[in-house]
């Protein structure tokens, strides 16, 4: 899922500047599940903004709303009227939601209330670990189901660097070395030979390096009226 973390209150306050009437907008999908931007977090942030601005001697009027999915037009279109009268919207959705709001409602500025961090797996309650970088050219078949692009700090394709020790990444002992995991899995399935093959340089053009990515599925597009 897409995972994010709420920005510090002081940073959000700074973003607000002179705004006196603010709407905090949550999202009911990924950021709800990762406890960063759902209805509950919207309520907490809204209260915090009210209290902080009051303490600062410049009270802000803060309202709350949460839609099921900020990244789809059909869920945000009904907001059009509700946005009337606000100086600013603070979105607690991921970066996609924030941009969808700005695109759909170009007359009002929507600011980011969270930092979108990763495509992660909630490995246990309260812990999210990155699993995918959306590189656009999946190689999990070559690496026994463990992604070195997302999970190796150096995105190595031909085995572990010299900093791997006791299964830990040199960058942070809390991060497991992806290649240690890949090697262990290769042993389990007797596929060590697969890791002896040299992997050529990766084609990064399908990743962000090729520019912003776009998928067009003609089979799914709706025929334009009049055509």
């Amino acid at each position: 899922m897409i995972v994010g973390e709420q920005k510090p209150l002081t940073e959000i306050m700074e973003q607000l500047g002179e705004a006196r009437k603010v709407l905090v907008a949550g999202c009911g999908t990924c950021v709800t599940v990762c406890f960063a931007g759902g209805e509950k977090e919207v309520g907490i942030l809204a209260s915090a903004l009210r209290m902080k601005s009051k303490l600062d001697g410049r009270p802000i009027e803060v309202d709350e709303i949460t839609v099921q999915r900020q990244c789809e037009w059909e869920y945000i279109d009904p907001l059009a009227e509700q946005l009337q009268g606000y100086d600013i919207v603070v979105s607690l959705a991921c970066g996609i939601g924030v941009q969808a709001m700005n695109e759909r409602f170009s007359e009002i500025i929507t600011l980011p209330g969270i930092n979108t961090t990763s495509l992660s797996l909630p490995v246990e309650q309260g812990i999210w670990e990155e699993r995918c970088q959306a590189c656009g050219d999946c190689i999990l078949d070559l690496t026994l189901g463990i992604c070195p692009i997302a999970r190796c700090s150096k995105q190595l394709l031909n085995g572990p660097c010299g900093g791997s020790q006791r299964g830990e990444c040199e960058v942070n002992p809390d991060v497991p070395c992806a290649w240690q995991l890949i090697w262990e899995r290769a042993i389990k399935f007797g596929k060590m030979d697969q890791l002896l093959e040299m992997q050529p340089p990766k084609n990064w053009s399908s990743s962000r390096d090729g520019g912003p990515r776009k998928i067009v599925r003609e089979d799914l597009r709706l025929a334009e009226e009049g055509k």
Partner: peptide
């Protein structure tokens, strides 16, 4: 060489590259 991670150095906020790895560099 692959290179030590930038987090160890004096520009820890830098972007790293790792377009190719050391094995691929040898071949290149």
């Amino acid at each position: 060489l692959t290179g030590d991670h930038q987090s160890f150095g004096n520009h820890p906020t830098a972007k790293n590259v790792h377009d190719i790895d050391s094995v691929q560099l040898v071949r290149m």
